[in-house]
Design a binder for these strands. Sequence first.
DNA 1: CTGAAAGCGCTAACAA
DNA 2: TTGTTAGCGCTTTCAG
Lengths: 335, 335
Amino acid sequence: MASATIRDVAQKAGVGVGTVSRVLNNSASVSLNTRHKVLAAIDELEFSPNLAARRLSRGKTMVIGALVPYFTNPSVVRRLQGVVSVVANSQYDLILFDVESVERRDVFLRNVPRRQLVDGLLLISLMPTDTEVAYLQESGLLAVLIDAHHPMMHRVVVDNVVGGYQATKHLLDLGHRRIGYISDFLDDPFNSPVRDRFTGYLQALDEAGVTFRPEYHQQGEHGRFQARALTHQLLDLPEPPTAIFAYSDTQAIGVIEAARERGITIPNDLSVIGFDNIEAAEYLHITTIRQALYESGISGCELLLRVMADPMPERQVITLPIELVQRHTTAPPGG
Amino acid sequence: MASATIRDVAQKAGVGVGTVSRVLNNSASVSLNTRHKVLAAIDELEFSPNLAARRLSRGKTMVIGALVPYFTNPSVVRRLQGVVSVVANSQYDLILFDVESVERRDVFLRNVPRRQLVDGLLLISLMPTDTEVAYLQESGLLAVLIDAHHPMMHRVVVDNVVGGYQATKHLLDLGHRRIGYISDFLDDPFNSPVRDRFTGYLQALDEAGVTFRPEYHQQGEHGRFQARALTHQLLDLPEPPTAIFAYSDTQAIGVIEAARERGITIPNDLSVIGFDNIEAAEYLHITTIRQALYESGISGCELLLRVMADPMPERQVITLPIELVQRHTTAPPGG
DNA sequence: CTGAAAGCGCTAACAA
DNA sequence: TTGTTAGCGCTTTCAG
């Protein structure tokens, strides 16, 4: 029941604790013979080192943390899956922090470094403020952003401006001129992609000589149901859009549901393009901008591990590709 | 940079470390006055206790672990979301273990208790063997199963026999007599639901006087693509089934895709019923057996916390309800 | 109510 | 190559 300690092992093997520690840590300077003796004792006692003690002594926790804004968001989950896949093959364990509100996020970012709970931190789809970055920085906790921007941080990103541009351009190329944009709140300080895609949307519109109409941009909290409501508002307009660019696939699903509720046929009466290419987008044949979600988790975690092994002063920026995936929810206006 | 220690605080406050520790742990026996002094020092030094030290000293880790078989499985993710939601409101942190192979699972279950990494463990959709249970038991690590059975363990389950029965009964009631079952491997020792649902399937068939045809039961690895292939095998039969009961919604999606590839219309030419009621089932209007995935995570985690606070010798079993959700993939045979 | 001191189990520096 | 020992930062007796 009560686990054996390194002292028990040392005694049983007839060596000092230092030696046991050495074989535990694969130190080269242990004779084959004593190593065997120690190993035998370890085996017999079913000993395995107490992590807390090791951590305290080494000053390292051997765990990395992943901070996510909404663990229920499919794209976040997908990124996390990438993270998990690399953690599983590392020496580290993964501790998951879900922060569903701004206050919690704040509290969290201020406390994690101090608590010395993790050796490294992954911030997923969450842009820290300058203050928070400064705090992280001076705490010495290594961190990497995934799907978020900050000039002072290592990060894995996609070009969301180009993404927004491509989505809109696709609609424009199809012949649409009345193009709506349904998105999260533009002024959310922690969400930079939402602004970037909007910028891309504006650029494409401008390039095509189409004037932006403020009423075509509906914003609300992220989510399928919210997007559905926003779509109804768009469709209630005297001159409703013929195409809608949704900030995410989740929201695109809301758009589709709203259309169905009104008996509007997609893509004949209304085109919809999403963003992310989550699995549901494939099931529902939603045209979308694919971004490598899973890979972003992999890259981000690998980068963090690399930085932890060998801190690099220059900020690393990994830009992942995006790509239009044309499916069945977009077509020329009027069918 | 280097965090302050309890000693620094003690010095600054002009008290002993013991006193600081007492205010840290809300001990009643500290005068209001000294408490204030200490609190002020803590504040000033931005001190927060080192977790590793605290854990070593207390012998508790304050983290609970969640062991999942495939973190990419939507139903597992959903359960995990429930877990996360309760962990977030507790004193504990959550560490996530993803074990994608049987060997890793074995290694893991043998090592976790020893490592003293967690105070409690949640095993999700993973049935431990008797040996493993015995090992857990004697290690003293508290654990709760979610979506898995074992007489010696606390657990949160649904009645999968009834679930399989209901699904099959629904098809039978619609008039189907040639009913296929597509599932994971029946002999997977770690997957008890697959056998239970099969039992329910058999019962319903028997009760309706329909003879079970072995060729109607196709098994393979879990997954959409595998299910798609299995469906083709079923549909290639000289007398193919008119309805298919898929072990999971994910597999039901595979069935639907296979049908589409063959130009077979659902539900007119083929009925499909899934299991779980994952989100995609809603999008795709799949008739399914709903089980409370999210709630299972909540219940399981709450139970674990309860057991950790006050170990109960009697095994707790929480049975969650299931329910048929009729949507658009099932209809009487022949349309 | 409070201070001093003895661990918790391990690592790493220092001798030998 | 090895044993000894001094911490790592906190909690928890034990005195007072």
